[in-house]
Amino acid sequence: MNLFGRDREPSRRPVEDVDLDSLLALVAESLGYSFEFARDGGSVRLTSVTGSGTGAGEPLVVRLTGLRREAARRAREDWPMLVSEHLAHAVATVGDRLDVCDLEQAKPLMRTRVESVDEVSDLTRVVGRHLNADLVELLTVGTRAVRPEEAGCWPVPPARALDLAVANVRRDERLLVERIELSGTPVTRLTAATPAAATHLRWLGSYLPVPADGALVVLPDPYTLLLHPVDGIGVVRAIERLRVHAAQTDGLSSQVYWWHRGALTLIKADIVLQSGHARLVVAPPPEFAEVLARLAV
């Protein structure tokens, strides 16, 4: 093992860092690289032992600050996967000019993307926050989601990085606003050029009048929002129309949500077949049920 400063006094680094270094060394060797760790443990320099193939030529410097932070949060049995993914990604992207671990490089490219929770294979391997129990807003750089060990390199916490990405989304574009009908029920369609339409819910009032009781929302795909104001008992029919439309699109979510006071709440609505006929069974959350009761008077 070739370590910077190996002739110094015995290391007083935490045993966890030493153990992680040993795992990094094993993975580096399995990938065909020799290695040198920086004195502060913040990076490792990989050099191809064959002198050919991926990574040949100039040594590859891999940042480790974010990896160490992520490892500290995870059980030790997760470390082999974390290290293997980190070094394999570094090798695979050796020709890329973008270093996601460099905040100044990454910041202009930060965006958000909304995904169904069920479609994200491992929520611990991405940076994001829940819009609700069904949907998550992911932090992206370019076209891919940011990994925790990459965000761990930055001098800002992940929540602040997400705020920077949201600000970029707002600067990028203004959504297209259209008035359409779903089986006679008027709704507003907002369309984005990027898969971040739901991010614009934060600024919904700049697109259409939003009553005090909020608006119904469906997300048929990451580029589209369909909305109906909660401003009268006609909202009951709107829930049915929106739910049926969302189910037919088979996109981001088949559910109807209530956007109110900055929160996106599920309005559980199931399509039930009885005697060959489909009907909608709605189980609204208590606060929305109170709104419906008031509007029905």
Rank of each mutant, 00 (worst) to 15 (best):
D7F: 10
D7I: 02
D7V: 02
D21W: 13
L24I: 15
L26G: 13
A28G: 03
L31I: 00
G32N: 09
E36I: 12
A38N: 13
R45Q: 14
V49E: 14
V49F: 06
T50P: 03
L60M: 15
L64M: 10
G66V: 02
R69I: 01
D78E: 15
E85D: 15
L87E: 03
V94E: 14
R97G: 15
E104Q: 13
K107E: 15
V117W: 12
V120M: 14
T124G: 11
R129C: 10
R129G: 13
H130Y: 15
L138I: 09
R144Q: 12
A151F: 07
R160E: 15
A167D: 15
V169N: 14
R170Y: 12
R171M: 08
R174V: 12
S183G: 04
T188L: 11
L190H: 08
L190Q: 09
T191W: 09
A198S: 11
L201G: 02
W203H: 12
L216G: 01
T224S: 14
L226D: 03
L227C: 10
H228Y: 11
P229I: 02
V230G: 01
I233D: 03
A238H: 07
I239Q: 06
R243Q: 12
L252P: 03
Y257I: 01
I267K: 03
K268M: 04
H277Y: 11
V282G: 06
P286L: 04
E287P: 03
V297H: 11
